[in-house]
Design a protein around this nucleic acid. Sequence first.
DNA 1: ATCTTTGATGTTACCGGTATCCTAGATTTC
DNA 2: GAAATCTAGGATACCGGTAACATCAAAGAT
Lengths: 331, 331
Amino acid sequence: MSQAGNGSRVGPGATMAEVAARAGVTKMTVSRVLRHPEKVTPLTRQRVTEAIAALAYVPNRLAGGLTSGASGLVAAIVPTLRHSLFADTLEGVSDVIAAAGLGLIVSSSGYKTDVEESQVRSILERRPDALVLTGLTHTADTRTLLRGFGLPVVETWETGDEPIDMVVGYSNRAAAAAMTAELIGAGYRRILFVNGPSRNNERARHRAEGYRAAMRQAGLDPLPVQVVRDEAAIRLETGARVLRAVHAEQPEVDALFFTSDVFAVGAVLESRKLGIKVPEALGVAGFHDLEIGRVVSPSLTTVQIPALEIGRKAGALLLDRLAGRAVAPSA
Amino acid sequence: MSQAGNGSRVGPGATMAEVAARAGVTKMTVSRVLRHPEKVTPLTRQRVTEAIAALAYVPNRLAGGLTSGASGLVAAIVPTLRHSLFADTLEGVSDVIAAAGLGLIVSSSGYKTDVEESQVRSILERRPDALVLTGLTHTADTRTLLRGFGLPVVETWETGDEPIDMVVGYSNRAAAAAMTAELIGAGYRRILFVNGPSRNNERARHRAEGYRAAMRQAGLDPLPVQVVRDEAAIRLETGARVLRAVHAEQPEVDALFFTSDVFAVGAVLESRKLGIKVPEALGVAGFHDLEIGRVVSPSLTTVQIPALEIGRKAGALLLDRLAGRAVAPSA
DNA sequence: ATCTTTGATGTTACCGGTATCCTAGATTTC
DNA sequence: GAAATCTAGGATACCGGTAACATCAAAGAT
């Protein structure tokens, strides 16, 4: 599957000093040509430009950053890249900051806060200009470290008190409550909330809370939240299984609200097999949090999650802060 | 959705010189404590360690890298992060290189080679120790630039002649051919290959070639490849639409081979509605290239794509090269 | 025609580390 | 007990740039 090339190393390219020598000027002039071209005579500029081209010179931003104190890097830590939610967020961040000439450095923590902490330490050694974190749950040391470092930090996906610095949140609680209210408004009454494994998953817990709150608000008794335990069970078949079980054992249930739309799709699929009409006889709703959410047919009621948007917003927030603009708390 | 914190900047942390002063030693000794602790007396080491803790000192790797010539960064360019194929690959790369203390810097090119070229230029300014690219299709300047720079480069996802340096490939052609052969082996004869939009998409083209080759090999006439044009049409409904059309207009077709498993899932779904038995009356196959592929039910014949594995392999290849180990061409 | 200003470039120092060489005291060797 | 060897730590230079200031010639002011 892999093959090796000849591996001829030429070594790193020319340095600014070499360019300067070739153009018969000093490093400083070369630096000016690159950074403030208008301060250099067209003639000189051309000589330098030619030397740059001739030597295929690529400036070393690390060196420049040492002096200027800005690395031009934004770091982001996500629980995993294998979840479109986070990948989309990163794409959003990347889009925005790349346009400003900043680079994105990424690591994934595997949902573990202690891993995240060690990654934060390691990342700080690279002196990023800003940091994007996922969630508000971090170790105490992480928070202390970051606060002390005075680095612009954006936490994403959750809202709450005492953020480290800035937050671009998404209230799972509110979204689940809204979805539940929508189902109630559509006439469903016995709504069963089906959660994925909520270990290490604040999201799932908040969603369940939103469901309960909305039910109570409407004067309905929340049904016991059903939990799918097996971590590996995020599959269509699992949704199908839940549907079969509910159909057999809790026939009074008239709507299913899944945390993962994978389950929801699986359930919809299975409902056709069993001859249950969706959404007439049974409502099925889900959170659009996987890539599948972008492709799913409309027979399913879904909660849209603006992952890309959250990333963009986080990026924009950081850029504002880096530009020294006041960052206004916004919706 | 977003909120701002108090934004108290403390400024960057202490420098090595400050730590040294506090511990009553020189920078050099501090550097030794961090890098070669065994070369320092336990007593001195402790004093330095205490000073480091007291000042919350975080070493600056950029500065160190300037001297040592290694940035400790691997850069990767993918067409987009919004595709689990590439996100998974990145996760694989990240896993492997993070374990070796390297960071991953990511950018997405939007499938445009000229954008990729400018990103390569910009990335080279950060002097990564290695680069991971997607595909073998790059601008001539990109190739020249990278060859000249003598940077270890791994191209992923495609195999072919004249790689820039190293390749971790995946032959879409071979995979499609194998899948087609499998369908033929299962008794299907009138196999229709349904391609996604192949603009900017070598993958789709190679898969179609594989299909044709396998058909001919078996002495069958390949059917004209059907192409789904609309870029936005990567939805379940599209697969359903194709199934309906084929059912009505090309009843002789006994198997559908989709490039995207999203279509395949949509088709399977629709087949249940129409009362077509899968896989008895109709074979449906797809490429497992979206996240959905990890959750899909087994009634679908699918081509597994080892995205994570490809990333891991790329990372391992780079590490080998960086460690100065000979890189053997391998399967 | 002399004194200022202005603009283009050069000089110097420094960013925060590390490689390399050097020194002085401790330890070993004969 | 003197010479040889080690060892811990210091001194210096340098990585590849950039900020800040100095310089000098051309241009403008009086």
